[in-house]
């Protein structure tokens, strides 16, 4: 019998995030799927993970971000379920959890994976991008167990034909030995736009916007896109730091990336080069972003973006 796959499904107040549904989809190729949620997750979460093929939902409470305590709880689940693989989405918090979990379960560890395969004998093989996505690596996990953190948009989420009705069990997280203390936690306000890390379409403003993001936002709204920014734009305070795409900010790999006034410094490319299609508008014909843009336009973003938005509205009047 194939060993089960544990999938950590990130959720917002019990509603699974899109990244979690993608992971459940990817996990189905590896074995029977069991979902794990951290913190209160009820019937809605169970129905949703069942729709994407999970036969069980394990709820870990209390909800905490302490990686050591969570890793211990997950390690017990690995033990009791006999899971050979644990999948999670590659966020900063999850990567810390993945590291601790791999350590205590003696598992192989891959983070920021862009794809997942199985080799002969059930070994897990991952695909990763390296050096600002200029290289592609295929790696093999050499341990019987694997912990893999997969980037959003690596696999499209598709429901199963007949939804599963997962059994729901609750497991305690022992936080008594925790030495770290969270003094304050402020959830980021939601913008009404898609989450930047998970969005299928991202419109990004850089230095060329000179702080005026109105054209970027207008196009983003027409495209149903998330809004991102370069380091310069966030350092200038034109937009919050959480919007920064790049090596030290958010890594995005949407189907469509539109850069407006983005020069394409190596720091930024490291966070977006794996995007499907890249469209760039910049006044400087020498901007390095044009080296990687599928469609590059030299010109003034303040006239081009609104024109594109208007034309898209005309072509899709229902939108």
């Amino acid at each position: 019998m194939t060993a089960p796959v544990l999938v950590l499904v990130d959720h917002h107040d019990g509603v699974p995030r899109a990244s979690g549904l993608e992971l459940l989809t990817a996990a189905r190729d590896l074995g029977p799927v069991e979902a794990v949620c951290i913190g209160e997750a009820g019937a809605q979460a169970a129905a949703e993970v069942g729709r994407f093929g999970a036969g069980a939902l394990h709820v870990l409470t209390p909800g905490t971000t302490a990686p050591v305590a969570l890793a211990a709880a997950l390690a017990r689940l690995v033990e009791t379920t006999g899971a050979a693989t644990v999948l999670m989405s590659s966020t900063f918090e999850n990567k810390e959890l993945a590291a601790h979990l791999a350590l205590v379960t003696d598992a192989g560890l891959v983070v920021d994976a862009a794809g997942l395969e199985t080799a002969d004998g059930g070994r897990v093989v991952t695909v990763q991008q390296a050096f600002a996505a200029t290289w592609t690596l295929r790696s093999e996990v050499l341990r019987p167990r694997a912990v893999v953190a997969l980037k959003p948009n690596a696999v499209p989420a598709t429901p199963v034909d007949t939804p599963f009705e997962p059994t729901v069990t609750t497991h305690d997280v022992d936080v008594s030995a925790m030495r770290e203390r969270v003094v304050e936690r402020t959830p980021r306000p939601t913008s009404g736009r898609p989450d930047l890390t998970e969005a299928q379409v991202v419109v990004v403003g850089g230095r060329g916007t000179e702080g005026d993001f109105s054209a970027v936002e207008e196009l983003a709204d027409v495209l149903g896109a998330a809004v991102g920014a370069t380091r310069v734009a966030t350092d200038e305070g034109w937009i919050g730091h959480e919007a920064q795409i790049g090596q030290t900010g958010v890594t995005v790999s949407p189907r469509l990336y539109v850069g407006a006034g983005v020069s394409g410094a190596v720091h930024h490319r490291g966070g977006m080069q794996a995007s499907g299609t890249i469209v760039a508008v910049n006044a400087d014909p020498e901007a390095p972003i044009f080296e990687i843009a599928d469609l590059g336009v030299v010109g003034d973003l303040f006239t081009i973006l609104p024109q594109a938005a208007a034309e898209l509205r005309r072509l899709r009047p229902e939108g």
Binding site: V298, G299, T303
Partner: peptide, 16 residues
């Protein structure tokens, strides 16, 4: 198949 164009007044339409 990368394309680089210079705006001649209709680049927004061409992007769309």
């Amino acid at each position: 198949d990368r394309v680089l164009i210079t705006d001649e007044g209709d680049a927004g339409v061409r992007i769309a």
